[in-house]
Protein backbone atom coordinates (compact mmCIF):
# COMPACT_ATOMS: atom_id res chain seq x y z
CA UNK A 1 0.00 0.00 0.00
CA UNK A 2 1.29 3.43 -0.87
CA UNK A 3 1.57 6.10 1.78
CA UNK A 4 -1.88 7.43 2.51
CA UNK A 5 -2.55 11.10 3.21
CA UNK A 6 -2.08 11.88 6.90
CA UNK A 7 -5.75 12.35 7.78
CA UNK A 8 -6.67 8.98 6.23
CA UNK A 9 -3.82 7.15 7.90
CA UNK A 10 -4.98 8.09 11.39
CA UNK A 11 -6.45 5.13 13.17
CA UNK A 12 -7.89 5.39 16.70
CA UNK A 13 -7.01 1.73 17.30
CA UNK A 14 -3.47 2.33 16.14
CA UNK A 15 -2.70 5.95 16.97
CA UNK A 16 1.03 5.58 16.44
CA UNK A 17 0.63 3.93 13.08
CA UNK A 18 2.52 0.72 13.88
CA UNK A 19 0.42 -1.19 11.44
CA UNK A 20 -0.44 1.48 8.95
CA UNK A 21 1.48 -0.24 6.18
CA UNK A 22 0.61 -3.86 6.57
CA UNK A 23 -3.15 -3.82 6.49
CA UNK A 24 -3.48 -5.61 3.22
CA UNK A 25 -1.72 -8.83 4.11
CA UNK A 26 -3.40 -12.15 4.58
CA UNK A 27 -6.44 -11.56 2.41
CA UNK A 28 -5.98 -13.26 -0.92
CA UNK A 29 -8.84 -13.31 -3.35
CA UNK A 30 -8.41 -16.44 -5.43
CA UNK A 31 -9.61 -16.02 -9.00
CA UNK A 32 -12.65 -18.00 -10.04
CA UNK A 33 -10.67 -19.44 -12.92
CA UNK A 34 -8.24 -21.02 -10.47
CA UNK A 35 -11.03 -22.43 -8.32
CA UNK A 36 -12.86 -23.82 -11.34
CA UNK A 37 -9.67 -25.35 -12.74
CA UNK A 38 -9.06 -27.08 -9.39
CA UNK A 39 -12.63 -28.42 -9.35
CA UNK A 40 -12.27 -29.79 -12.89
CA UNK A 41 -8.93 -31.39 -11.98
CA UNK A 42 -10.54 -32.99 -8.90
CA UNK A 43 -13.41 -34.39 -10.96
CA UNK A 44 -11.04 -35.80 -13.59
CA UNK A 45 -8.92 -37.44 -10.87
CA UNK A 46 -12.09 -38.93 -9.33
CA UNK A 47 -13.01 -40.42 -12.70
CA UNK A 48 -9.46 -41.72 -13.05
CA UNK A 49 -9.40 -43.46 -9.67
CA UNK A 50 -12.79 -45.09 -10.36
CA UNK A 51 -11.57 -46.14 -13.80
CA UNK A 52 -8.41 -47.80 -12.50
CA UNK A 53 -10.38 -49.78 -9.89
CA UNK A 54 -12.96 -50.88 -12.47
CA UNK A 55 -10.22 -51.71 -14.95
CA UNK A 56 -8.66 -54.17 -12.53
CA UNK A 57 -11.96 -56.05 -12.18
CA UNK A 58 -12.60 -55.92 -15.91
CA UNK A 59 -9.09 -57.14 -16.76
CA UNK A 60 -9.50 -60.01 -14.29
CA UNK A 61 -12.91 -61.07 -15.65
CA UNK A 62 -12.22 -60.56 -19.36
CA UNK A 63 -8.59 -61.38 -19.91
CA UNK A 64 -7.79 -63.17 -16.70
CA UNK A 65 -5.11 -60.66 -15.76
CA UNK A 66 -4.15 -61.01 -12.14
CA UNK A 67 -3.03 -57.47 -11.32
CA UNK A 68 -1.40 -57.54 -7.88
CA UNK A 69 -3.38 -55.87 -5.11
CA UNK A 70 -0.66 -53.37 -4.24
CA UNK A 71 -0.97 -51.75 -7.69
CA UNK A 72 -4.60 -50.96 -6.95
CA UNK A 73 -3.98 -49.50 -3.49
CA UNK A 74 -0.84 -47.57 -4.45
CA UNK A 75 -2.57 -45.96 -7.45
CA UNK A 76 -5.68 -45.13 -5.43
CA UNK A 77 -3.65 -43.55 -2.62
CA UNK A 78 -1.42 -41.57 -4.99
CA UNK A 79 -4.49 -40.14 -6.73
CA UNK A 80 -6.17 -39.40 -3.37
CA UNK A 81 -3.01 -37.62 -2.17
CA UNK A 82 -2.91 -35.47 -5.30
CA UNK A 83 -6.61 -34.63 -4.84
CA UNK A 84 -6.11 -33.84 -1.16
CA UNK A 85 -3.13 -31.61 -1.96
CA UNK A 86 -5.20 -29.66 -4.49
CA UNK A 87 -7.94 -29.11 -1.90
CA UNK A 88 -5.49 -28.05 0.80
CA UNK A 89 -3.38 -25.79 -1.43
CA UNK A 90 -6.09 -23.98 -3.38
CA UNK A 91 -9.49 -24.41 -1.72
CA UNK A 92 -7.95 -24.02 1.75
CA UNK A 93 -5.48 -21.49 0.34
CA UNK A 94 -2.32 -22.81 1.97
CA UNK A 95 -0.55 -21.95 -1.31
CA UNK A 96 -1.17 -18.25 -0.59
CA UNK A 97 -1.44 -18.29 3.17
CA UNK A 98 0.89 -17.41 5.98
CA UNK A 99 3.58 -20.04 6.59
CA UNK A 100 2.47 -20.76 10.15
CA UNK A 101 -0.71 -22.51 8.94
CA UNK A 102 1.32 -24.71 6.58
CA UNK A 103 3.67 -25.63 9.42
CA UNK A 104 0.67 -26.57 11.57
CA UNK A 105 -0.80 -28.75 8.85
CA UNK A 106 2.48 -30.47 7.96
CA UNK A 107 3.10 -31.21 11.62
CA UNK A 108 -0.34 -32.82 11.79
CA UNK A 109 0.49 -35.00 8.79
CA UNK A 110 3.74 -35.93 10.50
CA UNK A 111 1.81 -36.93 13.64
CA UNK A 112 -0.54 -39.08 11.55
CA UNK A 113 2.47 -40.71 9.91
CA UNK A 114 4.03 -41.49 13.29
CA UNK A 115 0.74 -42.94 14.50
CA UNK A 116 0.29 -45.23 11.48
CA UNK A 117 3.95 -46.26 11.26
CA UNK A 118 4.35 -47.26 14.88
CA UNK A 119 1.11 -49.24 14.77
CA UNK A 120 2.30 -51.04 11.65
CA UNK A 121 5.71 -51.73 13.17
CA UNK A 122 3.99 -53.29 16.16
CA UNK A 123 1.70 -55.47 14.05
CA UNK A 124 4.31 -56.63 11.58
CA UNK A 125 6.88 -57.23 14.30
CA UNK A 126 4.75 -59.30 16.66
CA UNK A 127 6.00 -62.79 17.30
CA UNK A 128 9.08 -62.11 15.27
CA UNK A 129 10.64 -60.06 18.04
CA UNK A 130 9.26 -61.78 21.14
CA UNK A 131 8.29 -65.16 19.80
CA UNK A 132 7.34 -66.67 23.14
CA UNK A 133 4.54 -64.13 23.43
CA UNK A 134 2.97 -65.11 20.14
CA UNK A 135 1.23 -68.13 21.58
CA UNK A 136 -0.46 -66.17 24.33
CA UNK A 137 -2.73 -64.27 21.98
CA UNK A 138 -6.07 -65.97 21.43
CA UNK A 139 -7.73 -66.13 18.03
CA UNK A 140 -9.44 -62.81 17.70
CA UNK A 141 -12.00 -60.96 15.71
CA UNK A 142 -14.32 -63.78 14.70
CA UNK A 143 -16.81 -63.14 17.48
CA UNK A 144 -16.29 -66.54 19.13
CA UNK A 145 -16.28 -64.98 22.58
CA UNK A 146 -19.47 -62.90 22.26
CA UNK A 147 -21.58 -63.15 25.40
CA UNK A 148 -25.16 -62.97 24.15
CA UNK A 149 -28.05 -65.36 24.12
CA UNK A 150 -27.72 -67.85 21.29
CA UNK A 151 -24.17 -66.68 20.56
CA UNK A 152 -20.71 -67.70 21.53
CA UNK A 153 -18.73 -70.82 20.85
CA UNK A 154 -18.51 -70.43 17.10
CA UNK A 155 -17.70 -67.59 14.76
CA UNK A 156 -20.32 -64.84 14.64
CA UNK A 157 -21.18 -65.27 10.98
CA UNK A 158 -21.63 -69.03 11.47
CA UNK A 159 -24.02 -68.49 14.40
CA UNK A 160 -25.93 -65.87 12.46
CA UNK A 161 -26.20 -68.19 9.48
CA UNK A 162 -27.34 -71.19 11.52
CA UNK A 163 -29.95 -69.13 13.34
CA UNK A 164 -31.21 -67.74 10.06
CA UNK A 165 -31.51 -71.17 8.45
CA UNK A 166 -33.40 -72.49 11.48
CA UNK A 167 -35.67 -69.45 11.54
CA UNK A 168 -36.54 -69.60 7.83
CA UNK A 169 -36.77 -73.37 7.76
CA UNK A 170 -34.43 -73.70 4.79
CA UNK A 171 -32.70 -76.91 3.90
CA UNK A 172 -28.97 -76.66 3.38
CA UNK A 173 -29.39 -76.94 -0.42
CA UNK A 174 -31.94 -74.15 -0.50
CA UNK A 175 -29.68 -71.94 1.52
CA UNK A 176 -26.61 -72.73 -0.58
CA UNK A 177 -28.57 -71.78 -3.69
CA UNK A 178 -29.58 -68.46 -2.14
CA UNK A 179 -26.01 -67.86 -1.00
CA UNK A 180 -24.72 -68.41 -4.53
CA UNK A 181 -27.38 -66.01 -5.88
CA UNK A 182 -26.36 -63.33 -3.38
CA UNK A 183 -22.74 -63.56 -4.33
CA UNK A 184 -23.41 -63.85 -8.04
CA UNK A 185 -24.81 -60.33 -7.97
CA UNK A 186 -21.60 -58.94 -6.49
CA UNK A 187 -19.75 -56.66 -8.81
CA UNK A 188 -16.55 -57.94 -7.31
CA UNK A 189 -15.86 -61.58 -6.73
CA UNK A 190 -13.34 -62.47 -4.05
CA UNK A 191 -9.96 -62.27 -5.67
CA UNK A 192 -8.46 -65.53 -6.89
CA UNK A 193 -5.52 -65.65 -4.56
CA UNK A 194 -7.35 -63.93 -1.73
CA UNK A 195 -5.13 -65.36 0.97
CA UNK A 196 -2.25 -63.12 0.08
CA UNK A 197 -4.12 -60.69 -2.11
CA UNK A 198 -3.53 -57.63 -0.03
CA UNK A 199 -0.46 -58.54 1.88
CA UNK A 200 1.42 -61.65 2.82
CA UNK A 201 0.87 -61.79 6.58
CA UNK A 202 4.29 -63.00 7.61
CA UNK A 203 5.23 -62.46 11.19
CA UNK A 204 1.68 -62.25 12.49
CA UNK A 205 0.55 -63.90 15.66
CA UNK A 206 0.09 -67.61 14.88
CA UNK A 207 -3.16 -68.12 16.81
CA UNK A 208 -4.98 -65.49 14.79
CA UNK A 209 -5.09 -67.51 11.62
CA UNK A 210 -5.72 -71.02 12.84
CA UNK A 211 -9.38 -71.03 11.76
CA UNK A 212 -11.39 -70.24 8.68
CA UNK A 213 -9.83 -69.57 5.31
CA UNK A 214 -6.58 -68.81 7.07
CA UNK A 215 -6.08 -72.29 8.43
CA UNK A 216 -4.13 -73.52 5.44
CA UNK A 217 -1.89 -70.51 5.44
CA UNK A 218 -1.37 -70.71 9.16
CA UNK A 219 -0.09 -74.24 8.71
CA UNK A 220 2.20 -73.14 5.94
CA UNK A 221 3.77 -70.20 7.61
CA UNK A 222 3.18 -70.16 11.30
CA UNK A 223 3.15 -73.65 12.71
CA UNK A 224 6.48 -74.62 11.31
CA UNK A 225 9.24 -75.97 13.47
CA UNK A 226 10.78 -73.70 16.02
CA UNK A 227 7.78 -71.50 16.71
CA UNK A 228 5.85 -73.81 18.96
CA UNK A 229 8.67 -75.45 20.87
CA UNK A 230 9.27 -72.72 23.37
Amino acid sequence: MAHAPAEHAYDPKDPHGFHAHDHDHGHVIVSWQTLLAVLVALLILTALTIFQAQFEIHADKTWGWDIPGWVNIVLAMVIATIKGSLVVLFFMQLWYDKGVNTVLFLFTIFAVWLFLMFTMIDLSGRSTIVQWRGGEVVAGGSGVGIKREGFGGSALHVTVRENYIAEQGYTQEEFDKKLAEKHASHTRKPHGNSKDHSRVPTGLTPGLFSTGPWAELAEDEHTGKGKSDH
Partner: peptide, 9 residues
Amino acid sequence: FSYPYASTD
Protein backbone atom coordinates in the same frame (compact mmCIF):
# COMPACT_ATOMS: atom_id res chain seq x y z
CA PHE B 1 -24.14 -58.19 12.73
CA SER B 2 -26.86 -60.53 11.44
CA TYR B 3 -26.25 -60.97 7.72
CA PRO B 4 -26.64 -64.67 7.00
CA TYR B 5 -24.90 -64.67 3.62
CA ALA B 6 -21.48 -63.58 4.85
CA SER B 7 -18.69 -65.10 2.83
CA THR B 8 -15.81 -64.57 5.24
CA ASP B 9 -15.10 -64.94 8.95
